[in-house]
Amino acid sequence: MLEIFTLTLLTLFAITSVVAAYLAIRERDLVKAVVYSAIQSAMYALIYYVLMAPDIVLVYIPVSVGLIPAVLLFVIKKTERYEGD
């Protein structure tokens, strides 16, 4: 029972990460793209937790959900917000 529940969670996280990555690449507004990319990274952190890697979760939550979006927001503030053709 626990095994089936865990594997279902793993599948759900994987599918959500694909949707978030697709939206992050399609989005014109770069701030929204950064938020979608953070959602994708959070899904990957949960996948690592299910795959029994607590060390990676501890490093992934601050780096990929906290610091990289912060850096990207700094960069967007200093450059352009919208991606044109």
Binding site: P54, D55, V57, L58, V59, P62
Partner: peptide
Amino acid sequence: TPGGGFQAGSI
């Protein structure tokens, strides 16, 4: 326990 220098520095 899970953790170490890299994790703590990022936190």
